[in-house]
C-alpha cells in the first residue's frame, strides 16, 4: 500500500506528470481517431435500421457514448476533487478543472442529439420528465463548477470551493441513472442492466455502439491530459522546473 502511494505521489508531482503525459497523449489520440473512423463507418453505413425507428436509430451511436461518458466525466471530476481536498494533491484539482469543460461539452452534445432523436421518435424535442430534467442539472453542475472556480482570484481557494460543489453534485449521478426506473418518464429505460445482465440491443447494433464508445473514451483521456497539462502550466508558471522544460 505504501509503495503504491509513493508511486502515486511521484506520478502526480507536476513536473513528473508533465513529462509522462506529453508522451502518453498520442497513444490515446491515434487509436481514438482510427476507432472513430471505423465506428462512423459502422454506424452510418453498415449497421441495420431499427424495426421501429428506422434510420433514426443511428443517433444512438453518438447519443449513448456522449451521454454515458458525461456521467463518467462528472464522477471522475468529483473523485479527483475529493482526492484534492483530502490528500491536498494539487494535480488532482488540476485534473478536475480540466474535466469540467470536457464534461460540459459532452453533456451539451447529449442534450442536442437527444432532442434531435426525440422529435422523430417521441414527437417532441423536449419534455420535463425526471430523466431529462435531472440530466439538464448535470450541465448546470459542470457550468457551476467552472464558474465557481473562476470566481476566486486565488487558485487554491477556487479549487477547494469548486471541489465541494463537485462532491455535493455527485448525488445527481445515481438520480440520472435510476430516474427511468424510479419514476414514470418518457425516456426509455436503460438497455443494459448489471442485475439483469441482458442487452436490449441486437448484436449488429452493439458493435458500432461499442466502437464509438471506446473511441470517445480514448479521445477523452487524451483531451483531459492535454487540458490538465495546460492547468499545470498555469499553476506552476513561476516554478523553476517549467523554465527547465521550456529552455530545452
Amino acid at each position: 500500500m505504501n509503495a503504491f502511494m509513493n508511486w502515486f505521489y511521484r506520478m502526480a508531482s507536476p513536473p513528473h506528470f508533465y513529462r509522462w503525459s506529453g508522451t502518453a497523449i498520442p497513444w490515446f489520440l491515434v487509436p481514438a481517431t482510427v476507432l472513430a473512423v471505423i465506428g462512423l463507418y459502422l454506424a452510418l453505413v453498415t449497421s441495420p435500421t431499427d424495426y421501429q425507428m428506422g434510420d433514426t436509430v443511428r443517433i444512438m451511436y453518438v447519443h449513448v457514448p456522449v451521454a454515458w461518458l458525461s456521467l463518467m466525466c462528472y464522477t471522475s471530476m468529483a473523485v479527483a476533487s475529493a482526492i484534492g481536498l483530502i490528500w491536498r494533491i494539487k494535480l488532482a484539482h488540476a485534473v478536475a478543472a480540466a474535466i469540467a469543460p470536457a464534461g460540459a461539452s459532452l453533456t451539451a452534445l447529449a442534450l442536442f442529439t437527444g432532442s434531435l432523436w426525440g422529435k422523430p421518435t417521441w414527437g417532441t424535442y423536449w419534455v420535463w420528465d425526471a430523466r431529462l430534467t435531472s440530466y439538464l442539472m448535470l450541465l448546470f453542475l459542470f457550468a457551476g463548477f467552472a464558474l465557481l472556480r473562476n470566481a476566486f482570484s486565488d487558485v487554491q481557494r477556487g479549487d477547494r470551493a469548486a471541489a465541494i460543489l463537485a462532491i455535493v453534485g455527485v448525488v445527481n449521478i445515481p438520480i440520472i441513472h435510476y430516474s427511468v426506473n424510479w419514476w414514470n418518464t418518457l425516456h426509455q429505460p436503460a438497455s443494459f442492466s448489471v442485475t439483469k445482465g441482458q442487452a436490449g440491443i441486437d448484436s449488429s447494433m452493439l458493435w458500432p455502439l461499442f466502437t464509438m464508445l471506446f473511441a470517445v473514451t480514448l479521445y477523452l483521456v487524451a483531451l483531459v491530459l492535454m487540458r490538465t497539462r495546460n492547468e499545470v502550466l498555469i499553476r506552476e508558471r513561476r516554478k523553476a522546473w517549467i523554465k527547465e522544460v521550456l529552455v530545452k
Binding site: 489520440l29 462512423l40 452510418l44 428506422g54 434510420d55 433514426t56 443511428r58 443517433i59 453518438v62 447519443h63 456522449v66 469543460p101 470536457a102 461539452s105 451539451a108 452534445l109 442536442f112 442529439t113 434531435l116 432523436w117 422529435k119 422523430p120 470517445v216 479521445y219 487524451a222 483531451l223 492535454m226 487540458r227 495546460n230
Partner: peptide, 25 residues
C-alpha cells in the same frame, strides 16, 4: 428515408465539438 435531417446534424455537430475541444486545448 427522410430521417437524415435528424441524423446528420447529430454527427456533424458532435464531430465539430469534439475536434473543437482539441483545437482549443
Amino acid at each position: 428515408n427522410g430521417d437524415g435531417v435528424f441524423v446528420w446534424p447529430c454527427y456533424i455537430v458532435t464531430v465539430l465539438v469534439l475536434v473543437g475541444n482539441l483545437l482549443i486545448a
